[in-house]
Design a protein around this nucleic acid. Structure first.
Lengths: 228, 228
DNA sequence: TCAAAAGTGTTAGTTTTACACCCATGA
DNA sequence: TCATGGGTGTAAAACTAACACTTTTGA
């Protein structure tokens, strides 16, 4: 029996960034087509017939916002029959991380505008995108405790205090500076550099560190558990 | 511009059970249609136009194997362009748990046969179903440490030793009986019954317990973390 | 020399692990 | 009365949490 499905497939990306003085931000674009014309929405779009899903996401991120993604994983598939006024559209949502200071956002023909919004001050959103972002925020807050994804949001070289502030922001609780540092150092996944942070404000300049990915994978294979 | 997608959507279910003397088992059906006619495969099938995804899964489980699922969550969406010889078929895989002793599996017209296979002795499988099961097994092993889903695999009333053996099987390491019991009791999510296990073999009969779901949700809301 | 932020160590409390003897039951 | 599995407590070790003073820098 031939299958005559009318179901359409899209992908959507929830891309988070971290801006130290601002907090956690998410990338939104302003739609240039109906439905929800001129509404804010997640970057995304229809999956092409022979395209794999990750390609569809990275393609849409590049064409709609000029963003080259750093870290990308599948989040969840949304399939409620009435989530899209055009008919049955199932969307596979992805979860991404970038360091927003590396990008100049480029709104292209596919989007009127593309900007970072603080996750605490989101505008009205198209479709069920508010729900999707909610879920992605939960995933981020959870995942950062068990996997070293926080580094994707920071500069390659960073002072430990930046990492700590990121964790304080995401976990929404104060963290003891000394204990945090001890814990991170004890994991043995940071490389200390002989460089100091360029002075931003006052005070003693901090040493810079970077994440040692190879070492991490080695340690993980040996049974080490990353946990903050 | 109208969208002319040829992509088709299916759901597949990885349903696990626990048989104390056997270990962790997964539900497979024998296909009655091409492709992979007569191969073992995960229960699943095409999503109907106006049907939500969970409904599609529970419908297929019921018609293909006569199973009423206990616990169901979305696992992952598989979208590699060549995963199905019929063309582009994207499949949303679900992860389910049942107590297999509650079911008499019923192979129906949609499946030649439906049986439980030990996850250590899987047959050759249709499509990319081996990959899907791999991922589901990882999810199960991981999830059982942070969420009280183990209870879904046991009888409503069970001796603590059964729960402990389940954890030993899944985590693949010995667990100290006394420490395990202390930990579980300390969580305060079990109800002790004034019943003893009917004698299966020799030895002192064990007290029976059941999972206190309400209490668990209350404690969780208050910040308690379930962790084994 | 002052203000700001970085660097660093010790102690108490809590949690986790290791470990062994007695009890209830059926054969 | 023996074999089998169930029930239970304590002490050492590891980990986590709390806490404050000194150093480096620029203004």
């Amino acid at each position: 029996m031939p299958i005559k499905q009318q179901i359409k497939l899209t992908v959507d990306a929830v891309v988070f960034g971290y801006i130290p003085k601002e907090g956690i931000v998410v990338l939104l674009i302003k739609r240039t087509i109906e439905p929800f014309l001129h509404s804010w929405a997640l970057p995304g779009g229809f999956v092409r017939d022979e395209e794999n899903l990750e390609n569809a996401v990275t393609r849409e991120l590049l064409t709609e916002a000029g963003v080259n993604i750093n870290y990308l994983e599948q989040l969840y598939t949304f399939g409620m029959p009435n989530r899209d006024p055009r008919g049955r559209v199932v969307s596979i949502a992805y979860f991404g991380l970038v360091n927003p200071t590396n990008y100049k956002l480029a709104a292209s023909s596919d989007a009127e505008d593309a900007t970072w919004f603080n996750i605490k001050e989101l505008p009205d959103l198209a479709f069920d995108h508010a729900t999707i972002i909610d879920l992605a925020v939960k995933r981020l807050r959870n995942k950062i405790r068990y996997e070293p994804i926080g580094f994707e949001l920071l500069d390659k070289k960073f002072p430990i205090a930046d990492l700590e502030k990121l964790y304080e922001t995401l976990l929404d609780r104060p963290i003891d500076r000394r204990n945090f540092q001890k814990k991170i150092n004890h994991l043995g996944i940071l490389i200390a550099h002989n460089e100091k942070q360029k002075q931003v404000s006052q005070g003693r300049p901090a040493k810079l560190f970077s994440f040692n990915e190879e070492k991490y994978f080695q340690l993980k294979k040996d049974g080490m558990a990353f946990e903050i």
